[in-house]
Design a protein around this nucleic acid. Sequence first.
DNA 1: TTATAAATATTGTATGCCCTATATAATTAA
DNA 2: TTAATTATATAGGGCATACAATATTTATAA
Lengths: 99, 99
Amino acid sequence: MTRRKVIDLRGFLSFQILHELKRKRLCGDELAEIIGRKKSSKLTPGTIYPALKKLRHNKLVAFKQEGRKKLYTLAPNGEKEYIRAKKLFRKAFTDLLKS
Amino acid sequence: MTRRKVIDLRGFLSFQILHELKRKRLCGDELAEIIGRKKSSKLTPGTIYPALKKLRHNKLVAFKQEGRKKLYTLAPNGEKEYIRAKKLFRKAFTDLLKS
DNA sequence: TTATAAATATTGTATGCCCTATATAATTAA
DNA sequence: TTAATTATATAGGGCATACAATATTTATAA
């Protein structure tokens, strides 16, 4: 049980997933890799798959089985949610990235 | 009990507190107001005060009692942590604000 | 002086993020 | 065919964020 940093910057995983899927269809493993790279360490299965499960249940993403991969895409509701969330995100953090 | 949004954009509160304190000394109530405004609703006492307590205990912020207010400032360690966190934050989210 | 408001604080509850550990199924390589 | 790899998945837990409700202290107004 490694000690967590005081400022650990957790958060917004679902939002990031939608963001990546808006660009491109991706499977869970690829999402873990891409988002993990931005956070400087690949996300574990115990992180990415429960997140995808929840997004699926809320119908924000859909998927198509392709071999052993599930290729995820943004569902219509996911697109809406993404747009909404992005507005909020920008309002909250734009000045933080500029300064 | 209002239903929570699927994408609720939680996170980074401690980071945001450090960010605001870097600009200006502020008391808890003002932080709740300023950060809350960016999130479109003022943070409740049950959110802001525990967060400040933890930052105090970790010596990332210091404060000076002034009347009934506690005016918070960034401690040296807080400055360091803020810089570190900001780098990570930028790496993770810059492209999200651009597109 | 007394009432009101401002600011701080705690308790209790809920939930998302994220990990480790473990497991299973499908594909590929030996 | 068997072994290794790839991809998905769940269980169990720690912790930060966030709310509502309640309480306390200090400053201000009536």
